[in-house]
Design a protein around this nucleic acid. Sequence first.
DNA 1: CTACGCTAGATTGTGCACAATTAAGTTGTG
DNA 2: CACAACTTAATTGTGCACAATCTAGCGTAG
Lengths: 143, 143
Amino acid sequence: MTASVLDSQLCLAVYKTAHAFTAVYRRILEPYGLTYPQYLVLLTLWENEPLTVKELGGKVDLDSGTLSPLLTRLEAAGQIVKSRNTSDARVVKVSLTTAGLRLQDELRDVPQQIGNCAGVSREQAKTLLDQLQVLTKSLRHTS
Amino acid sequence: MTASVLDSQLCLAVYKTAHAFTAVYRRILEPYGLTYPQYLVLLTLWENEPLTVKELGGKVDLDSGTLSPLLTRLEAAGQIVKSRNTSDARVVKVSLTTAGLRLQDELRDVPQQIGNCAGVSREQAKTLLDQLQVLTKSLRHTS
DNA sequence: CTACGCTAGATTGTGCACAATTAAGTTGTG
DNA sequence: CACAACTTAATTGTGCACAATCTAGCGTAG
């Protein structure tokens, strides 16, 4: 087997692992009416609220085409509020509502639940994480 | 840092690596009018043609809700043909057209190109692959 | 033969990903 | 001031992911 075929398999494996992860998140988050990307956005806001759409997009690696409708849904669900900046009307500021803040506490056990399902040791997780970050950097650099 | 937070980061890393990979595939496959999932379907057919929709779905891990429209697009693009089985009219057989077969040769360098972009050694790729497969199995088992 | 249950695919509806375009607002320069 | 260049978000269009439902066809028990 050549190295390149291995790389193709690697892509497929990453692809399938990502789906397996989101399936687990879906099961856990479904009772709260959240998807994994929405949860990611909330995680980011819990740490850094408030953020502009652009800042948020930079942190979660999503552009306005994905983020705009996602934020609209989160706002409709009552978790966040969008407001135009007064000094620069191009900028939209995203803040948490009381309900959105409360979710942080309600979802505090999610990482633990994910950890249980992943079932890898701390050392394995760290190693895997490092390798994936190197790989991602390499893929981004050449594309 | 707790192990569970590490697992959350691991999910995010997998998620980002998957996107980085598909971005590379997108760039490579775009001249051929193909997406990564479409390429996966063709890869499978090049090895096993003809296949039923169900067999194909089992191999690429996609259900009919995703596969049906994808196959419709591949058929519209002239790469495949769908035909009802005569003995059991519920079954749809998916075959390659001459153009679809020719693509196998035109795309023979794709794994090599992916390998160049990934830039990992054969040993690293193998290790990573194994770890991801174990992780995926664990995630599927518990969800 | 009829009815029930099962299977294969297709369809519908919601949401994400992303390229391309648009709209609105801001800033710098003549 | 006028206006071109740039920035921020939103919108549009295509395609994937997946749950839920629907339809058609098959097979068997009664």
